[in-house]
Design a protein around this nucleic acid. Structure first.
Lengths: 133, 133
DNA sequence: CGCCTGCTTCGACGTCGGTCGAAGCAGAGG
DNA sequence: CCTCTGCTTCGACCGACGTCGAAGCAGGCG
């Protein structure tokens, strides 16, 4: 049911080039809303900067003065926004970021595409992140 | 009272380089939260892509099926986040975007700075946008 | 099998935020 | 001065969201 961000946003011009359609703005705002919370933003940076590019939930929980369910909730929001992926390996669940989505969002903000970022695979527009609920 | 985004965020590394501090995440999330609404995101793109780089409120109101007070409220949120500035000229109020803030936020998202964007003035780190409530 | 640990889901509660109509303020123009 | 238009502020309503404890699920380990 969730529209695929790649189809709607991946092909949209930078903000200053032409106005967003109603649908594009809805899709894009989903990602920004997920990043619009201090805890989630910090979770994102903790995962992104962790060694190996992934972090266990138990590592993340210790950083905050928040309950486990709350951290789990925030991770779910990030997951549903397509910003991270979670994978269970044995007892622990490891989270990774999707650098493609960050690169896509980043490109929308600046007038100059700056497409030399390593995360943007050449001709990989259809390989952009897909939100699978 | 509002901390200046330039001091807190303007000097922070990309997300994947090192984790954000609690304060940095609070400041940054303020901007993302402002962009986390479809109407505000569309307002932002309408202003940014308008001829002359500025748009009158009356032009913006016509695009949405929303009341004037609601549009005004969203513009205030964007203003307080430092994303736009409003200037009264005679009867009308014109809004402009702050491309520096967009460039700053964009740079935080991608691991490669991509600092060749025209909005990032060389050595102008202290000239970055300041939120003045 | 039974327990223990790590994580998620559920249900509830309080706050925040988007929306509106009514009212207020600022200029322009009679 | 009065009025009219453009925009903002105010007050209220209601749904969305962040938070928690309790309960549920999954996998390791005696």
């Amino acid at each position: 049911m969730l529209a695929q961000l790649a189809e709607v946003v991946g092909c949209c011009e930078p903000l200053a080039r032409e106005p967003l359609s109603a649908q594009q703005s809805v899709e894009l705002s989903r990602v920004f809303k997920a990043m619009g919370d201090p805890v989630r933003l910090r979770l994102l940076s903790l995962i992104a900067s962790h060694v190996g590019g992934e972090a266990c939930v138990c590592d993340l929980t210790d950083v905050f003065d928040l309950s486990g369910p709350t951290i789990s909730h925030h991770l779910k929001v990030l997951r549903e926004a397509g910003l991270v992926t979670g994978e269970r390996r044995g007892t622990w669940v490891y989270y990774r970021v999707r650098p493609e989505l960050l690169a896509t969002v980043s490109a929308v903000l600046v007038p100059e595409p700056a497409e030399d970022s390593p995360a943007s695979v050449p001709g990989g527009r259809e390989a952009l992140p897909v939100v699978e609920a």
